[in-house]
Amino acid sequence: MVTGRSVIVTGGLGDIGMAVARAFAREGASLLLVDAREDGGGAAEALLADGATQVLIRTADIADPAMVAAAATTAQEGFGSLDVVVNVAGIMIYKPLAELAAADWRRLLDVNLVGAAMFIGEAFRRMTPGGCIVNIASVHARRTSALVAPYAAAKAALVSLTRSAAIEGKPLGIRVNAILPGAIEGSLLRASPNIASGAEMVDPADLGQPEDVAALAAFLASDAARFITGEDIVADGGRMGRL
């Protein structure tokens, strides 16, 4: 349970981000959702109805260190503490390697890796012992497919970053873990040309829901997971084992 604690969810208005926010809302958390998009669907009201103590939503580019610092300050000052950070925010670029420009690599890495690293740094400066960080990586960190090289590379680096952060976080009393989701129903999966073309097939039994990832994130942030840190946990319905 995270009742009374404050939680930042990056990419909080996306499919997985909103599911994560709902999971913590049901436990009475105060929530700050950080997203490049503006809230056009009453997310704050929905989360308060789910049981959140407070909800703030900030439109920000997490590749901008100043915006990251401002978001962390908002949570710390608005809620009185910063207890949990869930790094969900991510973008995808579908291109063959030969067509990728340096700008493509930089933009994706800035959002999917550097943004998460900046939030980890802010958390380390602000959290008290007992804090927790959960990074949403991907099975692409281990096994991947065509057209997603920057995404796969960023997620592999995020897993490595998680291990490094867990080492540095341990003396601070801060745990850091990563979740590696597989095929999760949502806009990112539906946008995949590999799926649309039939080049990559997803068995219905292997298709997860955002709530599956959210439940694991909530567990990793709970006292029940107090002895777990530095881990990268696959949540893919067993799909990777059959690839």
Rank of each mutant, 00 (worst) to 15 (best):
F219H: 10
G42D: 03
A225C: 04
K95C: 00
I233K: 04
V7S: 02
N112I: 02
E38R: 01
S81C: 11
T128A: 12
Q54E: 14
V111C: 11
D64L: 13
L180I: 03
G186S: 00
D236N: 09
I174A: 09
N87D: 08
I195D: 00
L56F: 10
F227G: 14
A235D: 01
S6Y: 00
D35Q: 03
R58K: 07
A221S: 10
L172R: 11
R126Y: 07
M118A: 13
N112C: 04
P210V: 12
S160A: 15
I174R: 10
I228E: 04
A46P: 11
A46E: 08
D64V: 02
R58M: 15
S187E: 01
D50T: 12
L220I: 03
A214V: 03
R143A: 03
A21S: 08
P210T: 07
G169W: 12
V148E: 00
T10K: 06
L158F: 05
A70P: 06
D83C: 01
P65Q: 02
G14Y: 02
S145T: 11
V114M: 15
T162N: 10
K170D: 09
I233C: 07
A19S: 11
S192E: 01
M1L: 02
I91V: 12
G237N: 05
P204F: 06
E99M: 00
G230V: 14
M92C: 02
A66G: 10
A146L: 05
V88G: 05
G4D: 13
V111P: 09
R107N: 15
G241H: 08
I133S: 08
Q54N: 07
E185K: 13
E99P: 01
D232P: 07
G121A: 14
L189H: 08
R22Y: 12
A214M: 14
I184E: 07
I136L: 12
R37K: 04
T53E: 11
A225P: 03
A149F: 00
D232W: 14
D206Q: 12
R143Y: 13
L113K: 02
A43K: 02
L113W: 01
A196S: 06
V234A: 11
D104P: 05
E168C: 15
L158H: 10
P129T: 10
M67D: 09
F219M: 04
R37C: 07
A117D: 15
S187D: 02
P65A: 09
L97Y: 00
L82F: 01
